[in-house]
Design a protein around this nucleic acid. Sequence first.
RNA 1: GCAGAGAUGGCGGAGUGGUCGAACGCGCACGACUCGAAAUCGUGUUACGGGCAACUGUACGGGGGUUCGAAUCCCUCUCUCUGCGCCA
Length: 430
Amino acid sequence: MIDINLIRDNPELVRENIKKKFQDKKLPLVDEIIRLDAKKRELQLEGDRRRAQRNTLAKSIGTLMREGKREEAEEAKTASKENNDRIAVIEAECDETEKALKAAMMSIPNIIADDVPIGRDDSENVQGKVFLEANEKPFDVPYHLDILESLGGIDVDAARRTSGNGFYYLTGDIARLHSAVLTYARDFMIDKGFTYCIPPYMIRSDVVSGVMSFEEMEGMMYKIEGEDLYLIGTSEHSMIGRFMGTVLNESSLPQTLTSYSPCFRKEKGAHGIEERGIYRIHQFEKQEMIVICKPEDSDFWYEKMWSYTVELFVSMEIPVRQLICCSGDLADLKYKSCDIEAWSPRQKKYFEVGSCSNLTDAQARRLGIRYKNAATGKNEFAHTLNNTVVAPPRMLIAFIENHLQADGSVYIPEVLRKYMGGKDKILPKK
RNA sequence: GCAGAGAUGGCGGAGUGGUCGAACGCGCACGACUCGAAAUCGUGUUACGGGCAACUGUACGGGGGUUCGAAUCCCUCUCUCUGCGCCA
């Protein structure tokens, strides 16, 4: 949600921004908001005036009663009643206007950064920097499920029986590798100065509706039957929710946190072959990072955050690139976003393994995350950012494809060996 | 699950129908002291909205009610805490 003052002061900027995102159907909303806002203020003005009158009348009645002027008091009471009836009407109308205004405001996209490339959809995203050379293997790289099976690392058949499609059992060294990657990523972020946090894996509906839109919620979130609880789709939900409705001390910013959690997603809709296997599943684990900072610092942290993910992947010798999200592909809450994509030697293209976003104050405004600006003494909205450190199942695809050797073994890079009992490779099952 | 208690500012915590936007404490800001800091002392400090401004409205967990007037009385919902039960 953007600041209403921006629409009051500079509606043209807001319209331009909507056009940049190819959401022209939302253009009429701007005028609608200006109209509703004016109406709301008008109603509020009259409401305020009448409420002020109610207060004066009530006070005078108190005085009159004390002085024993009963008749005058009765007259004032009648006047007050009439006034109150009118207040009720105005308040009802004001509520309605406010609701409509808020609904319209919710659909207005956040102002995007100047350097966001303009494009309609994900096909127009722009490649940023590339890290490590995207090598081609001298042999055919099989589908990741086949590699995992050859290593004795996965059982999807049993998972289908116990839980249905979109689940897996990881076993043996592959399961260990999965945990190793998480543990390594955790330590990596701690070394960068982030505070490690394990959050709740279930959150209440008010937190859910604060961190995402209703549509997103329908498509993603699992609800616990008979309780006001949802399984988190990412630890960002509970990590950001932690600060809902709070006013932080400026000295406590930036909050730089890294969190581990399992993530649960409905993943409604059909997905192609490249999104099967362990690419898109109902339950996975993820190491996440979030930053809550002062507005002037969010650009700095954005650059820092995505480059940490790159550094992590590079340290595991996996080629990656930054893919800059274009205007049309940017979710409405986002100011700027990029994906980190890993190289797939099988597909001979990059695929998403993480996503970094700067939401500026849009999410904070919705959730009421503020900080006390020491210079002005005012409470101001903080900026929120989030980024994937690593989501092991998805990164395992990149890992085994890139580190697969001609003999069918999988090479383990140096940084992970201490988490793998010193092993430098995973051997295929005989 | 059952029983009791509670929900007030950034935090803790007073406040039982008008003089309460709210004592007191902590925190925070500024100042004094100091080479500097800590400690100490002094001053200030609820938030959000409307209005060019003077000014004004709203908010004491949510919703509803009583009343001319509600933090305060009534109903209802939610949540939290303590004890008991159950249990990694």
